[in-house]
Design a binder for these strands. Structure first.
Lengths: 199, 199, 199, 199
DNA sequence: GAGTAATCGAGACGGTACGTCAAGTCTTATA
DNA sequence: TATAAGACTTGACGTACCGTCTCGATTACTC
């Protein structure tokens, strides 16, 4: 449909990949603050115009690079209990977050989303909301089974999970891992269950 | 002690206040992305050097402006129960977050903290950690009373609270208010109560 | 040869001429002391970078402007006598020096050559030495004919001529003209030869 | 008259000398282009205001420093012939010009006189014209004795002498010395003598 | 002595211009 | 039509000095 044989030279896949690779390299080397379109072009041996033609901003290049390199979209487990599903979801999420390059990139993208409103909209729609929807499937199933904590909306459960993760990423910069996963499961998924068992 | 009568002209309080006011105005008008040191200098009728002399970056000016204008440090209630203390803390926190100017500024500062590591350190020490310590007092008292949810560290409770608030601010941009406060109280502070009743 | 079809946009001749014209205008209006790169850029509707890309300093811009506007390189007469050749050379030189704009610019360039050693080298090589060589042709012919004053090297004759002109320009700021030409001819070219022949 | 016992603290001679010494040092070390009032103040341990109170510009400080350090005003010989007087005058002048520091400073002052018209006026009156007057005494005596070259005004003789010296200083930067003195004497002072003998 | 007045070192102030960097656009020759 | 190259205008950066303006301290003359 879209790339139906049009006249003219075709988009160079080689240039595209060189741009994405150069972008990740540069962020890893000197941080997002030092990332420039000129730097990407120079590193990847590409003209600046080629970058501007295909991406609206350098943050979009970075988002694209992240999506192309790391498969960001974690599987949605269906083990039958919220406890197991949430634990599995958090484990595969943490696996990503433990990679320093991915964590640094996510920090930069969330930051840029605050400063550049147009990119912010795209980041929310293309990335954040998709992650919410994935967790939403798990939480919805839990709600139907009556496994959610009393007095807390499904949406807020999602906010609590992602909020805690992002806060660790952005604010405390402490590593996330099994320990935090267990705590979140204890807080959000063991509530009704454990009390029920006790009785 | 430190500024014990040194020779030379004294710092102009008038200029300092003009700079802080201009900074807030400019952020309110066009957003942090459009905030420049030159703009602040022009708006406040001050030389650029005067800004660079006293603040290491424009983000520091903005942080100072926020601290000077809005009293950011909310009171720490001591009502005897975690439920009441947390509710009170969240209410006064939300009061701040509801002001669009404050919310926008916090977003920008958290963003800049990711992009500029040196400012990030200052932001964490001068702002984020102070807020954590305030909530920490409340949480510590709750822990001593056995009011914390089982299986969750005191530090993680703090992460959950601030994480959820910041996530709403940065990612979903939904307004925070009484509703969210009630949900967080239900999740974090009503737990022990019910188990206590069981025993 | 050198600019044989390279890729990329070509240097804009329009910008180049606008820069040179603006430079001369600004010097004429407010003097070299008030000439700034920013001023040139603003007046000529050009980015500062375009100036810095092609000239190492504002004095070089001015030298280029002078060379482009006024044809500085006077003809070398060959009338058969030193007397006639020197007189002709001086006359055409004075024609230039009588233009206030040219005189002011030369003053500024000679001044800048003292203050900025790197420009000084370029000014000497690109301008002063070329003028010396022109007069050198005339003086050499005179020397071969035995028309030079006794006890004075060819190089010193050149120094005396240009020295007197520059001294008038820089120090006394008196107008130069026919009168001075006649005196220099009397001093340097009428010496032994003509007086001997006449008698 | 002017320093008639007024109330108040007296001008500090110590500061004055420290300023002049620092100025010469700085020019010697890094050239006039790097000379700044702030640098002089820092080097001499003096407040900037103290400099601005007593000198209108940094060039005036430098001129004062030169006058204070080196006695610039050469003696006016009276040997009975233009040849001897001019030779003596040139010899003592060259003695000054051979000192690199003096030569560099003179170059800078002549340059600044072109760029800053107000200093130019002072430089001409306080320095250049005094030198002219000294040589003028010698030339006037020569004119009365009929020793000047035919067809050349007394003023032009002075222009030729100083012009050649300044041109060597500013343009060719060749050392001046006995050789040039002899040539100028040959050109300007031996003329009338030889023709007189012929007759 | 007790003013009174000018100077001093220090250093902050409003400005101007510097020379650099990168943004995003435009132009050229080539594929 | 896309591409690499590279020149273009624009705008902000952070720095250097300018010349002026407080300051508290010092020093001298006047009453």
């Amino acid at each position: 449909m879209t790339d139906q044989s049009r006249p003219g030279r075709k988009r160079s896949e080689q240039s595209r990949l060189a741009i994405l690779a150069a972008t990740l390299d540069l962020v890893a080397e000197a941080g997002y603050g030092a990332l420039t379109v000129e730097g990407i072009a120079a590193r990847s041996g590409v003209g600046k115009q080629t970058i501007y033609r295909w991406w609206p901003s350098k943050a979009d290049v970075l988002l694209d690079a992240l999506a192309t390199k790391a498969d960001l979209y974690v599987p949605i487990p269906d083990e039958g209990t919220f406890r197991a599903d949430l634990g599995g979801f958090l484990d595969s999420t943490f696996e990503l977050g433990e990679k320093a390059q991915v964590a640094d990139t996510l920090r930069a993208l969330m930051a840029q989303a605050q400063i550049d409103p147009e990119f912010g909209k795209r980041f929310r729609e293309d990335f954040l909301n998709r992650r919410r929807e994935a967790l939403g499937v798990i939480v919805d199933r839990a709600r139907e089974r009556g496994e959610l904590p009393a007095g807390v909306n499904a949406g807020t459960v999602i906010d609590v999970v992602f909020g805690t993760l992002w806060y660790r990423l952005l604010a405390t910069r402490e590593p996330v891992g099994r320990g935090l996963a267990d705590e979140l499961v204890a807080l959000l998924a063991d509530h009704g269950a454990s009390t029920a068992e006790i009785r």
